[in-house]
């Protein structure tokens, strides 16, 4: 990792208080940001997500507020500062992977918010389901599937939650390259069939 922004450190602080998310998640932490008071962004590998959430829930640290995603298309500058993005490029990722989808898991404990952030390759965005640990995560995972085109492995119900059943395949409205023309051939009568 050669490029690092000033507010990104590549490892957890060793003197973090015991039982704090910083300490609990230290072994998976690839970078830490504190964007605001009471907020902690922890950058992790998507593969370590389940382990991180397990540790947080086992320690009864807060509850899941929301899961959401960000499409980084057209925002290379912001993400060039991100050590994780750099790692994806270093791994010889293709041009497509240079605009990854970022997934964010928000946990709150009183006033504190911890955000687990990870990057997924755009063309093969895949993440494990959280439902084994937090069953209600299914709502957000269904949203990730239909809105961002992320494959959620082992989620109990992958069907549409918000979008119509006949929504065209491979059209994901919250991705930045979504165009309204992509759904213009979908008739309202068809939707309500």
């Amino acid at each position: 990792m050669t490029i690092q922004a000033t507010n990104v450190t590549s490892a957890a602080q060793p003197d973090a208080p015991k039982g704090s998310p910083m300490q609990l998640l230290a072994q998976w932490t690839k970078g830490i940001k504190t964007p605001e008071i009471n907020r902690l962004d922890i950058l992790i590998d998507a593969a370590d997500m389940l382990a991180c959430v397990k540790v947080l829930t086992d320690a009864h640290w807060g509850y899941l507020i929301a899961i959401t995603a960000l499409d980084t298309l057209g925002k290379p500058a912001t993400y060039a500062q991100d050590v994780r993005w750099k790692a994806l490029l270093d791994a010889g990722a293709t041009q497509a992977a240079s605009s990854p989808i970022e997934v964010l898991y928000f946990f709150a404990n009183g006033p504190q918010i911890v955000t687990l952030r990870m990057l997924l390759a755009r063309e093969a965005a895949t993440i494990s389901s959280l439902c084994g640990i937090i069953p209600s995560a299914n709502w957000y995972e269904r949203e990730l599937i239909e809105m961002f085109g992320i494959t959620v492995v082992n989620t109990p119900d992958p069907t549409h939650l918000f979008l119509p059943d006949n929504w065209p395949d491979n059209v994901y409205p919250l991705r930045k390259d979504f165009k309204i023309e992509q759904i213009s051939s979908t008739k309202i009568e068809d939707i309500h069939e």
């Binding site: 964007p35 907020r39 507020i65 929301a66 959401t68 928000f106 709150a108 918010i113």
Partner: peptide
């Protein structure tokens, strides 16, 4: 200004959560 923030308030039905990102 460029940045990200979260905004939480107590709506009548419970916690309402906004995540806002500005470019």
């Amino acid at each position: 200004k460029e940045g990200e923030t979260v905004s939480r308030i107590e709506a009548p039905r419970g916690e309402l959560f906004y995540f806002i990102k500005s470019g």
